[in-house]
């Protein structure tokens, strides 16, 4: 995940020539630049979207800016009116409970109790889709949704971005 590399490079002073970036930042940048053209008109039914701010990417990684980029992309993809934000949000968002190795460590009951705050928070948005840009978040949000009887669909961002892509020279 993002933080492991970001902080690893920093803490262990690992020499490197590349610049380390997040795909979320790039999505937003490419949409702003017009490099990626997206059209939310596919969302005729007005599917409501919300998102999870991955701790490792946002609070511990790039801060509020990348979380704002995430929202920018979702709004561009699903229509601004179809995004429902959570509270708390951005850098202050709750951890889903799947991070830190919790998904691998066992202690399933604790992990789900932990996830109850996240479940309640996401359920309160009434969203149909929860975007989870991190694999740990994805697995945990999927699990607590099922365990606590949530009704939303848990997905990565790329599936929807692909759906909204405007292909210029070729028909999609």
């Amino acid at each position: 995940m993002f933080y492991a590399t970001l902080e690893g490079l920093r803490r262990f002073k690992i020499p490197h020539k590349f610049e380390f970036v997040s795909i979320i930042t790039l999505y937003a940048q490419w949409i702003r630049e017009g490099r990626l053209k997206v059209d939310p008109s596919w969302n005729k039914d007005g599917l409501k979207f919300t998102c999870q701010d991955p701790c490792k990417l946002v609070r511990q990684g790039l801060g509020d800016q990348v979380a704002e980029d995430l929202r920018f992309v979702i709004k561009a993809v699903a229509g601004p009116e179809n995004f429902v934000d959570t509270w708390p949000r951005l850098s202050n968002n709750y951890c889903c409970g799947g991070g830190g190795g919790a998904l691998q460590a066992g202690f399933v009951e604790n992990r789900r109790k932990y996830g109850k705050l996240k479940f309640d928070q996401l359920a309160a948005t009434g969203a149909d889709v929860v975007i989870t840009p991190c694999h740990n978040c994805h697995s945990q949000v999927l699990d607590i949704c099922e365990f606590y009887g949530g009704k939303w669909k848990t997905t990565h961002l790329w599936n929807w971005l692909e759906k909204a892509l405007v292909l210029e020279d070729k028909a999609k």
């Binding site: 995940m1 993002f2 590399t5 490079l9 690992i14 020499p15 490197h16 020539k17 590349f18 610049e19 380390f20 970036v21 997040s22 795909i23 790039l26 991955p54 990417l57 840009p133 991190c134 694999h135």
Partner: peptide, 17 residues
Amino acid sequence: QAEVVDELGCRYYINTE
């Protein structure tokens, strides 16, 4: 990971999450 990226000579390392 860093060694691999530098060996390939890429300017940016994109993390997908």
